[in-house]
Design a protein around this nucleic acid. Structure first.
Length: 273
DNA sequence: ACTATTTCCTGGATGC
DNA sequence: TGCATCCAGGAAATAG
């Protein structure tokens, strides 16, 4: 399940592999769910564009494009936006590679390779735009004061607030649980009841967790993304996520699991207040 | 303007 | 072995 660190790793891997290549033609599948822009618009926007670079914004992969042939007039550059959802993959492969089940898009590149979007569950989304911006703040860029202000006054549980992409862009279920454990905050705590100091601790915890995970993902780029664009991640050692009933690594109290905002949430009732 | 809940999807795990 | 059921979760849609 790609959250910020995984998307960062994938975007870096893609950038290494396809930057400078030119999209010659595009094929789109018949399933409509993955397409957020009209199919014709996606095809028209992508074809004959050079990939200027690939980067991450929130949980989105942004493929920056530029005209393959220089034109006199240069307006805002086109962008291909990819959201991987739960099960989305970006595959770089040769045209001979068997087309995986649930392949929804194929971009044929001038280098002879193909860039494919595969997504069994179809929670992923493809779109094109010229002015992409994530609605929320980047967790690794935002200032501490701004971070604290995002949550103050909100009655919703802090876990829900962390998952709200229009506040903070890129934190998903796993890293939300891990950050709250490190900051010693119960996921159900109403955001508004948390002191500035404690929110400051959460700020530090979120950045720490994301940076550690990116560092681990980064080390896997050459080994895994090279193969087919699907990164095999060295998972960050989770301290609470997926550890229901197992002993807390700090105090041995069994980890609890509850559902908040429809998501499984893991915490230690002794270490988190 | 917020907040909470439901819905979309398939494959893997589980239960009988 | 086979079949039904449940569960995972990002974010849009819907409801309150």
């Amino acid at each position: 399940m790609p959250e910020l660190p995984e998307v960062e790793t994938i975007a870096r891997g893609l950038d290494q592999r396809v930057r400078g290549d030119v999209i010659e033609s595009v094929w789109l599948g018949s399933k409509k769910e993955p397409l957020k822009s009209p199919a014709a618009e996606i095809v028209q926007t992508l074809e004959h564009q050079r990939i200027a670079g690939v980067r991450r914004v929130g949980k989105h992969i942004v493929v920056d494009l530029e005209p393959a042939r220089k034109r006199a007039k240069s307006g805002p550059r086109a962008q291909w936006i990819v959201h991987l959802g739960m099960t989305g993959r970006m595959q770089v492969c040769s045209p001979e590679t068997e087309i995986a089940k649930h392949t929804h898009a194929i971009a044929r590149l001038a280098s002879g390779r193909e860039l494919r979007f595969v997504d069994p569950r179809r929670f992923g989304r493809l779109s094109v735009t010229r002015d992409f911006a994530a609605p929320g703040s980047e967790p690794l860029q935002v200032a501490r004061e701004k971070f604290v202000d995002l949550f103050r006054g909100r009655k919703t549980p802090i876990k829900s607030a962390l998952l709200n992409q229009s506040l903070l862009s890129g934190v998903g279920n796993i890293y939300a649980d891990e950050s709250l454990f490190r900051a010693g905050i119960l996921p159900r705590r109403r955001a508004t009841t948390i002191s500035r100091e404690k929110l400051g601790a959460l700020f530090v915890a979120v950045q720490e967790v994301l940076r550690e995970a990116i560092a681990l993902g980064g080390s896997s780029i050459s080994d895994y993304v090279d193969a087919d664009g699907q990164a095999g991640f060295f998972q960050l050692q989770h301290r609470v996520y997926g550890r229901e009933s197992e002993p807390c690594l700090k105090c041995q109290t069994p980890i609890k699991r509850v559902v908040i905002a429809g998501r499984s949430s893991h915490y230690c009732q002794h270490c988190q207040k």
